[in-house]
Amino acid sequence: MHRVTPWLQAGIKKSPALEGSCQVQSEQSLIRRAQQRDQVALTQLYEENFDRIYRYIVFKIGDRTEAEDMTQQVFLNAIQSISSYNCKGMPFSSWLYRIAHNQVVDHLRRKSRRITVPLDESISANEDDPKHVAEQKIEIEEVVAAVKGLTRAQQEVISLRFAGQLSVMEVAKAMGKSEGAVKAMQHGAIAALRKALGKVGVA
């Protein structure tokens, strides 16, 4: 079985034009220490990215238990290969999402079963009103189902922007696209979601 180049599966190519920007100096310093296997630096990077990576994965695959295992594996893979990370290639967050994306693609390739979303875990904290929670669950289910109807590239943009909370620049680096292309895909994706959710008046 050949190794898939995951990002290409979504029809995305690397762009040499995107080379060149590093993080702010404090993050560079943190990453350098992490590359020297500094425990505190590695822990800080883990803490800063853990929730976002988990959200991205669970939003993509819709299975809480699998997402937990995969999130753990993303960070284990990251610490194994962090010494090869070069900030000139892409921001650290984008690099980390590539690892997560690889995990997701491998997972989806292995399992083609229909996805179910763990609604009980999808509600944010501080929701005490059962009626409101139930309504929110329905809304979430609708949104997640609508996202599945997008193109792969659009799904990726939405997952990275809304679940991963990456900036457009970081999404562009992660996907090997220009920022303009990402913005256009984002617009198209939200318009398509709007249609899918049955709300007339799309831009």
Binding site: Y54, R55, F59, E68, Q136
Partner: peptide, 15 residues
């Protein structure tokens, strides 16, 4: 409005 709905759906908290 759709972006807000999407943001809510994506706000999934790990246990």
């Amino acid at each position: 409005r759709t972006a807000v709905d999407t943001r809510k759906a994506a706000a999934i908290l790990p246990r």
